[in-house]
Structure formats: C-alpha cells, structure tokens
Design a protein around this nucleic acid. Structure first.
Length: 603
RNA sequence: GGUUCCGUAGCUCAGCUGGAUAGAGCAACAGCCUUCUAAGCUGUGGGUCCCAGGUUCGAAUCCUGGCGGAAUCACCA
C-alpha cells in the first residue's frame, strides 16, 4: 500500500474511534503540499472538525502526532490553519528512487496484471473513421492522435485495448468521386499521375462539386429553382444516385471501379497513418456492417421500443427520453447512418465482448451518440451501456471552422511536411546535427516535427475547441514537444558520458544523502507519475499526461541548471543525481510514449 | 426556440473528485554559456477567473438565472 493510503487509513480509523462515526471512503483528501509551504503531503482537516469537536488547529495537530508516531516515513509536521503539512523522511524519497531506477516500465501497468480489470473485458477504442472521398486534414489529425493516445493510456493503466477503425466506404459521397472520375478522369491512376491515392480521389470529389454547381446554377437561372432543388435535379446528381443504386445492387462494373478507387485511397491513408505513427488492430468497413445493422433493427421490431409506419419505414420510439423518434430504416428498406452504427456496435460486441466501447468522434455528433445509446437500450442490447462517446472539440482556424468547400482545410500531409521542415531549419540554425548522417538527420527531423505537432494538439483538453493559426508556426520553445524532447536528449547525453558501468554502480548510492530543494521537488513530481497515468486513463485525457510531462521536464531543467551531476565532487551525491536523471528520462520517455510521441537520444 | 459544451493574463492554454496568496508558455523588457546540450535557466511587468445571486468554514471549480461563443436538433455522414 502506498503512503497516501496508509495515512488516509490511519486518519479514518482515528476519526471513527474518537467520534464513533464512520467516515465515507474518499473523504480523507491528501494533496501535495504547495511549494510555498514546508512539507510534502497535506491533509485538509476541515471536513473532520465538526466530528472531532476541536478547533481546526487542534485537529490537525492531533492527527500530526498520531501519524508521526505510527508511520516511520512521516518525519514531522506543521499546521497552518486547518492544513496539516506532513514531511516525509528523505529515506522515503531516496528509497522510492532506488526502487524504480531499474524499472523500464515505470508508471505503466503491464496488461493483465490486474485480474479484476481483465474480467471486464477489453476496451475497444474506435478512432479515425475516415470517409474515402477526401484526404485527411487537421481535424482528423486531432482525432487520430487522441484515439491512439487514449488507447496507449488505457493500456498503460493495465487495460486490454483493441484499436479499431471504421471506414466509411459506401454511400452517395463515394459515388460522387467515382462519377467525376468516370466522366473526366481519362483513366488517371496514382501510378500514371504520381499523385497520392487519397489526394487523387479527393480531387475528383471536388471536381464533382464544381461541375454540379455549374449545372445547378443553370437550372436556377433557366427554371427559377431554389438552390436545393436545382442541386437535386441536376443531371450529375441524378447520375450519382443512379450509381449508388447500381452499387447497392452489386453491379459488376460499378463495384470494380469502387474497389479500385477505394484501394487507392487506402494506400494513401496507410501512408499518412504510418507517418503519424498510429495503427489499428482491426479495420471495419461500413459496406460490411450496414446489412447487419438492418438485420438487427428488423430483429428489434419484436421489442416495444421500435415500430413500423404505414409506409414501411422503421422508427425508434424515444418519447420517454424526450427526444424525437429516430428513423432506422427508410420506407424502401435502405439504411441510414444510425443503422450502420447499430450494425458495427453489434459486430464489435460479437468480436470482442468488450467491457467498454469508446468512440473517438467530434462533438458535432453528441446527439447522434446519445440517440445511438438510447436505441440500443430499446433493443435490449447488453452493450448499450458500454458505449462511451469520447467527444472532442473542433480545431478552428482564426477565420473559424475549416471548410473543404472554401479550401481552408489544413491538409494532414502538408502540415507534417511543414513541421519537419521547420524542425530541419531550426536544428540546422542551432548547428546541432553536424555529425549526424543523412538518415539520422531525416529521422530526427521527423521525431521533432511530429513531436511539436502532436504535443501542440494533445496538451489541450480534448473536449475544448482549439485554435490553430497557420500563419504562426507551432512553437518549439517553452511548453512544447521539442522542449520535452530536448530535456530527454540532454539527460541521455549525461548518461552517455557517464557510461553503462558507472550507471549500474550508481544505483547503490546510500539512502542518507542530503537532498537539495530542486532535487526533492523533482523526485516528488516523478513520484506522481503512476497516479497521473491512472487519472488520465479514468478521464481519457492525454492532456493530463502532456501537462504533467512538461512539468517533469521543466523541473529537471531547473535542477540541471543549479546542480552538477557528473562534476559533483561527492561520489555518492553524483551517483544519486545520475539515478535521478535516469528516472527522469524514463518518466519523460514513458509519458511521451503514452502520447505517441517519440523522444530522441540526441538533438 | 430546445438540448449539450465552452468562457481564466494582450495571445495559446493549465488549474486533479470544492481547499492556503489563481499558474505555465508565447509576445515585451532585463540578466546568465571557459563548466555534463542556452530548443535551457533567472528576473520584471501583465487578472473583475464573463456577470449576478445561492450553497459553506472555504467557490475559478458545485447550483440557479443572465450575457457571449460553438455544436446539434435530417429519410446527410
């Protein structure tokens, strides 16, 4: 049991002993002592003064005496108003460091280590979920980074995780790209034009929209139709719908083209995913799941919650939830978005029996997931309550939301190019890579450029909208990925200079060294890492890890500035600092790993 | 209009289940490399935590009501 729990236990016991009343678990709150006060852990005693019938000061003093007496790790205490500040012995901190300095996986729980967690089944995390008609942009980047990181964090907290992608590969939007390509493509392929597959298909989607707009305008002028009517009646739109029907009926020619063009897109996506450093354990395709959705809905008609209208359409009755009824199948029997999600949820459950199904999807779909959950409850699905929508905010530009029609989307590949280029420029200006070979340089610029981008996005609370200004490049100084990476590289440099043998021997430093202020601060911060991982997993918040890791790096730099590690004359102190540096580097590496950010050993 | 989310320094963001004097970075200014990587460190200035009530020992945090912004309320995905 850790020291916080032991303190809490003793406090609980003595409160109930004295007052004759049990206190609820979790009512004893221990927090880190603020830096401007003396002590390591602080117990706020206000909640107990009523029960104890003493002044806050007396209550705090009373607990202080008991804790010093019962726990050898608690060295002393001081009381400020109702705050009991406990100081732990330096032996406690030094032993913590000794215990973990050899632990590569510090802060992380190995999968399956907690049996009760395993019993709940794996967590399925869905993220990315692209449409196959346009390339990935900055919004997708946030989605991918969040999803990947949340999966890593859950894994780090001991959960079994399955990462899945749901590709929306069917529907009218795909037909638009196909039609444009059939009409104007002249057989262009990624091979013939050298274009990336997803970009090429995206261009035809844009082309379709442009041509459609021309046709619609003509109709608006010649027949005086509204824009909506005109778009609907335009020949291109009618052809696209016809194409969809042919696809649904399995028309050989259409399906072949569909397969071919989707194949190009997948090649393009794969390249972008690889570069971003994200991956999946399983990929679902909506073309495979929408039929199961239909079945599930028809099956559900036996339940009370669903009903069929006279025209044959099927609806979910959501009156009880004060929501409008939701259409699940059109009169012609075709499915809608909701139907597909019902199908994929079912399939996912059949595949993994997950304890939780996390959907990393933008907050624009809050309502959709609300309804999905309700509908699955109506269908009496056991997994309805396992559904969790990890809803994240939009990435906005200074001018507002990104709009593909107005060409204001920030392309994922372009952005990564820019980041790497900035990394190259800055690194060369600083003259850091003169002895790197070309391959090493390229890899380093990738690590730094992507690190900057990923950290920039992940440090923001997922549920908040965030701003990206393309005019100002993402920072490399201050609270940034490269700052943290740099701190890691700095430590590695020291460890390299020390050498393997020296490092191993250093672990034997004695546990009675005099601790300097910055050293203690750093140890205390590192001590928090496992708890931060746990909380980040509960909240599914990479931002928590990002901000914590930054704090570690900042504190190391202060320590590093004030104290010499290898040039310290006292051998034992030097050994201790070496171990402290080593554990700091590992904490940074593991923390950044949870964000999907690599850290270089030199930069 | 209904529902949900957001509102903290000039800008971008932290602030954990209510706790002590609200923190970082950027930008500005002033310092620190003969010493383990200066992508670093130190200092200065910068706040009506949107507003008003309420809950209590104690509120940026919880509740209610406003104001401002975003999303959504499709037989689109």
């Amino acid at each position: 049991m850790n020291i916080e729990d032991r303190i809490a236990q003793i406090v609980e016991a003595s409160v109930s002993e004295l007052s004759g009343r049990e206190i609820k678990p979790g009512q004893v709150v221990l927090q880190r002592t603020r830096k401007d006060f003396e002590g390591d852990l602080t117990l706020v005693v206000f909640p107990f003064v009523g029960l104890m019938r003493r002044s806050p000061e007396d209550t705090a003093g009373y607990f202080g005496d008991i804790l010093v007496e019962k726990l050898e790790e608690v060295e002393s205490f001081n009381v400020v108003k109702g705050f009991l500040n406990l100081s732990l012995t330096k032996g406690f901190w030094l032993n913590f460091l000794k215990n973990y300095s050899g632990d590569e996986a510090f802060g992380l729980i190995k999968p399956g280590k907690q049996p009760q967690v395993k019993a709940r089944g794996p967590v399925v995390v869905e993220y990315s979920s692209p449409n196959t008609n346009k390339p990935l942009h900055l919004g997708h980047i946030r989605n991918n980074l969040l999803g990947y990181s949340v999966a890593c964090i859950l894994e780090g907290a001991g959960r079994e995780v399955v990462k899945v992608n749901l590709v929306n590969d069917r529907g009218i939007h795909i037909c638009k790209s196909m039609l444009a390509w059939m009409c104007f493509g002249n057989g262009e392929t990624p091979g013939s034009s050298g274009k990336k597959g997803d970009k090429l298909v995206g261009e035809y989607y844009v082309l379709f929209e442009r041509e459609l707009r021309v046709q619609a305008r003509e109709l608006m002028e010649s027949k005086g139709l509204s824009e909506e009517e005109a778009r609907n009646q335009a020949p291109l739109m009618q052809e696209a719908r016809e194409l969809l029907l042919r696809w649904e009926s399995g028309d050989r020619e259409v399906v072949d083209i569909w397969k071919q063009m989707n194949g190009w897109v997948y090649d393009g996506f794969d390249a972008t995913y690889r570069r971003l450093g994200v991956d999946f354990d399983k990929i679902y395709y909506e073309s495979d799941t929408y039929l199961l959705g239909k079945e599930t809905v028809l099956e559900g008609l036996k339940n009370d919650g669903l009903y069929k209208k006279e025209d044959g359409s099927v609806w979910a009755d959501l009156q009880d939830d004060k929501l409008d009824d939701k259409l699940l199948l059109r009169a012609d029997g075709t499915s809608v978005y909701m139907t597909q999600d019902i199908g994929t949820a079912q399939l996912r459950y059949d595949d993994y029996q997950p304890g939780r199904m996390v959907y990393v999807v933008g907050n624009e779909q809050n309502h959709h997931f609300n309804v999905l959950k309700k509908v699955l409850q109506k269908l009496d699905k056991p997994y309805a309550d396992a559904i969790y929508h990890l809803s994240y905010g939009m990435v906005e530009l200074p001018a507002g939301k990104m709009k593909s029609r107005e060409g204001t989307v920030v392309d994922a590949d372009d952005l990564m190019d820019e980041m790497e280029e900035t990394a190259r420029r800055m690194t060369e200006e600083l003259g850091k890579t003169q002895d790197f070979n070309d391959i090493e340089k390229k890899e380093l610029y990738q690590i730094i450029g992507l690190g900057a981008l990923k950290y920039f996005i992940l440090k923001v609370d997922p549920k908040k909208n965030m701003l990206f200004n393309p005019e100002e490049s993402i920072d490399f100084n201050g609270n940034t990925g490269p700052f943290i990476q740099y701190t890691h590289a700095r430590i590695c440099s020291v460890l390299r200079t020390a050498g393997e043998e020296r490092l191993v021997n250093a672990h034997g430093f004695p546990a009675d060294i005099q601790l300097q202020e910055k050293e203690k601060q750093l140890i205390k911060t590192i001590y928090d890492f496992p708890g931060v991982v746990k909380e980040a997993a509960e909240e599914m918040s990479p931002a928590r890890i990002a901000n914590y890791t930054y704090e570690v790096a900042r504190e190391f730099n202060q320590f590093y500035h004030d104290h010499s590690i290898l040039n310290e004359p006292d051998q034992f102190v030097s050994d201790f600092r070496l171990c402290l540096s080593e554990l700091t580097a590992r904490t940074i590496r593991n923390g950044m790993g949870l964000l999907g950010i690599r850290v270089p050993e030199r930069m």
